[in-house]
Write a protein that binds this DNA or RNA. Structure first.
Lengths: 203, 203
DNA sequence: CCTACCGATCGGTAGG
DNA sequence: CCTACCGATCGGTAGG
């Protein structure tokens, strides 16, 4: 990976280690060792270990939000299947673009101290609500089966996030294959697959 | 919770703390404090922190395996939808019966040292293969849609495991509601819901 | 189950 | 970015 700044290299190394061993399972000296510098030297670039976590989590939260914004622009409010399709593809795209940072965002945000933690918690809730309202609307319009929207949202979002545990950039499935597969599975879960599959999946 | 032995109380406290803060984020003294004893006193009952993790993880692995065994007994090999339905319900049942231990099993086994870690890794692979072969068979018999069995298995199992992040014992949904909802969503994901829903979901 | 203690490592600072 | 160092905490042991 080509690094533009030292700071970016630090966050790359930290993302990789936090992904593999967790935030508490990674020491400042582990991060430094990955960059071939002394532990104390890290503090020339960062103010604390938690600040590094915060930076990764905050930026990744923004990427998920921006991708969902971009994906749903111009899609008819009444088209629940189409909206869920693009939301799923957007989410999968952000995960696959940087599995390590996505993994840290998804699983390590709880290690943040209370104020930052609750800030992320609220943004996660709002993000989840986008999926839920699409599902509620699909159920209301009978586009989807009569699923429980809260359970269905949790089911789908945790399935999408689970990608970070098994997706490998140079594995059998190309990013587009994963996006297609996951969009089909998610739509199928709520009973909206038949419609979406017959219509294709326009973006 | 009624404790039969001190050892059990230790594993209860550890499961709760490992679930909330992770294995590395929990100290031996944290566990001791939850039991109102000194940190060093824990070693009268356990040989190491990792042994406590191992005990929780190993027992929970066995519970998942036993539940899958029991659920599939007497179900026709050719009935992919029926088999997937009971596998999903069995998995959800084990998670809901003890969310904290299930969470530790699912997310903290990576903290085990190499030999125990690879033992659990193999058992997880074998367990996952049960789901995958049912899905492969359902696809082959056109009971299910032509999903990618590896992706579909990962999608479904990570969704089921994601339960530990949001299920609350005294929440809105009763265990049976969650099992029904998740069985429907999982069957739907692979396109087998119509069949299962019309047939009902016998156990 | 306690007190007293061990060496190692933790996140972080001082001063260059 | 380094060396030298800080107090706190880590998992664990000795001996009762």
């Amino acid at each position: 990976m080509v690094e533009t700044t030292r700071r970016q290299a630090i966050e790359d190394a930290a993302s990789s280690l936090f992904h593999e061993h967790g935030y508490s399972g990674t020491s400042v000296r582990d991060i430094a060792r990955a960059l071939d510098i002394q532990g104390a030297s890290l503090y020339a670039h960062v103010t604390s270990k938690e600040e590094v976590l915060w930076s990764i989590v905050e930026r990744t939260a923004t990427r998920f939000e921006a991708a969902a914004d971009a994906a749903t622009v111009g899609i008819d409010d009444g088209d629940a299947a189409g909206r869920l399709d693009v939301l799923v593809r957007a989410h999968v795209g952000v995960v696959i673009e940087d599995v390590e940072r996505a993994s840290v965002f998804v699983y390590e945000w709880r290690s943040l101290a209370s104020s930052k933690r609750s800030s992320i918690s609220r943004r996660r809730d709002a993000y989840e609500a986008r999926f839920r309202s699409v599902i509620e609307q699909g159920v209301a319009s009978s586009t989807f089966d009569a699923v429980d929207p809260i359970a269905a949202t949790a089911f789908i979002l945790t399935a999408l996030n689970g990608l970070v545990a098994w997706y490998r950039p140079n594995g059998r499935l190309q990013p587009a294959d994963v996006a297609d597969a996951y969009a089909g599975l998610a739509l199928g879960a709520v009973g909206g697959a038949a419609t979406a599959r017959h219509e294709g999946t326009p973006r």
